[in-house]
Design a protein around this nucleic acid. Structure first.
Lengths: 100, 100
DNA sequence: AATATATTTCGGTAATTCGCTAAATAACAA
DNA sequence: TTGTTATTTAGCGAATTACCGAAATATATT
């Protein structure tokens, strides 16, 4: 979940996700929409992909990026679980358990 | 909004918020719940406060941290606006507008 | 004033992030 | 094979993050 919020923490990456919400777009089509060098955008794509917020598919010479809605939903669930009313399990030494 | 997601991107900070959801806690009470040095926790508190996810109130020698639910709600709204169906306004040079 | 408690600030180290340009790779076309 | 287009990888510098121990600050108590 850290990866997801980390990916969401950059405005360019949030904007990328908003574009992908409309329809899948190639790396180049996305790059057209920003005033950043393509390698810079490619790095942002990699962060989004590592968080599983987007999936990719090669189409000829292009790579198509597609929004992964289910991970966005998980992020919302994580926010709900912070705002919610269940007690957090005590924890003093952060050993291993899923630290949502 | 970047500040908020940035703050949410660290597991310790998410855990802090979960503790504060139950009731306001002092810096020391929070620090007891983690195996991290107090200066480290103090840094995490500062990040949460910069994002306005918590508010503080001095009570004698203690500083009481309190969850700011409304900012959590704004974060959820931001996620909704990514998952939603409205078209993002075109933008090619990221000039100034609120880059949610 | 002196002491005790609670918390933050300071200074340092190691690791990471974000932007860039240049170079490498992948798929396709001639 | 050569060339063209699309995209990523490599490498760099500047800035930031996360942790720590030591020192500083703020409040209250004696």
């Amino acid at each position: 979940m850290s990866d997801v919020f980390d990916a969401l923490a950059h405005p360019v990456r949030r904007k990328i996700l908003k574009y992908l919400r409309e329809r899948p777009l190639s790396a180049g089509e996305l790059a057209e929409r920003f005033d950043l060098a393509k390698p810079t955008l490619s790095g942002h794509f990699a962060v989004l992909k590592a968080a599983d917020l987007v999936t990719t598919e090669r189409k000829g010479t292009s790579i198509i990026y597609r929004l992964n809605m289910s991970v966005l939903e998980e992020a919302m669930a994580a926010l709900m679980s912070i705002a919610g009313t269940e007690a957090p399990e005590p924890e003093s030494q952060m050993p291993e358990g899923q630290i949502t």
